[in-house]
Design a protein around this nucleic acid. Structure first.
Length: 275
DNA sequence: CGTGTCACCTGACAGC
DNA sequence: TGCTGTCAGGTGACAC
């Protein structure tokens, strides 16, 4: 479910609400979610008594700073967080609850149970390859046009769609934002990266920044991630041009949006606008 | 290094 | 109503 803008939205809300909170206890009903440490009891014991110092993000990973430990959370397809008073009824698909000393509870729900948690000492990020090997972080000074060009300067037949989904190149793009960025850049998802012109690469670079920026401004594309007793927050509909719009008219030229499998993923594009 | 396929799960939806 | 098949915003393991 969540791509960079959604995770960033969750991060901002959680940071606001849980920094300074101390974990009083941990209820875990689906041990499978915990990858590290391998002993579930260890996971519980370490966390109990630790205080949230900060919540940060890298790519699609959420990082809970619980000095001297780091709790790394990946939401995969459907992971969600919500904050509740402890006497709120526990909703379906809640697998992990952090009981906080204030009486509130941070709850993790995940219908498909794909999410992962890694609890490691700070500074041992190398133990989590998916996180350690992430590529450039968009919207940071490191994500320059030159750096992006550099990544694409390979004589590779790899499709640009596969490239954009590769977290080791640019971190945080998923299927929606990849399709949207390619649409705004006017590039066919199947184009081999070696064939892209300097002009197209520049267009794509700008489009990536744009869609991510707008996604964050919209509070995440489609997330229903965060709820509290006030009702729902973080649910806004981003302006989507192609994703999930198969057969509907292209907002630019009106021809029907086509869906096909590229790089193993459902891919939406406008044959009229994307060459 | 690359690609495609499968697996991990549940639920929504289309078609019969 | 209820069955079956397909699909889903992610990633990692695997064979080739």
């Amino acid at each position: 479910m969540p791509e960079l803008p959604e995770v960033e939205t969750i991060r901002r809300i959680l940071r606001e609400r849980i920094v300074g909170e101390t974990i009083q206890g941990v209820d875990l009903s689906l041990p499978r979610l915990i990858r590290t440490p391998s002993e579930i009891e260890e996971f519980r014991q370490i966390l109990t008594g630790l205080t949230f110092q900060d919540v940060t993000r890298r790519g699609k990973y959420l990082l809970f700073h619980l000095s001297p430990f780091l709790l790394i959370s990946h939401l995969r397809m459907e992971g969600k967080y919500s904050l509740h008073p402890m006497d709120d009824p526990v909703e379906k698909h809640t697998h992990l609850i952090f009981r906080l000393t204030s009486g509130k509870e941070l709850r993790y729900q995940d219908v498909r149970q794909f999410g992962t948690f890694d609890l490691i000492p700070e500074g041992e990020i190398e133990r989590i390859p998916g996180l350690a090997r992430l590529g450039i972080e968009p919207l940071t000074p490191a994500f320059t046009l030159d750096a992006f060009k550099e990544l694409l300067m390979l004589p590779s037949k790899r499709s640009i769609k596969a490239f954009l989904l590769d977290q080791k190149k640019v971190a945080g793009l998923g299927n929606i934002y990849a399709d949207e960025a390619l649409f705004h850049a006017g590039i066919d998802p199947e184009r081999p990266i070696r064939d892209l012109t300097a002009e197209e690469i520049e267009k794509l670079y700008t489009s990536i920044e744009d869609v991510i920026q707008k996604g964050i401004q919209a509070g995440g594309a489609t997330v229903r991630t965060y709820r509290n007793s006030d009702g729902e927050m973080g649910y806004f509909q981003l302006q989507i041009s192609v994703y999930g719009r198969e057969g509907k008219p292209c907002p630019s030229c009106g021809s029907p949006i086509v869906k096909k499998v590229v790089a193993g993923r459902g891919t939406h594009y406008c044959p009229g606008c994307q060459k």
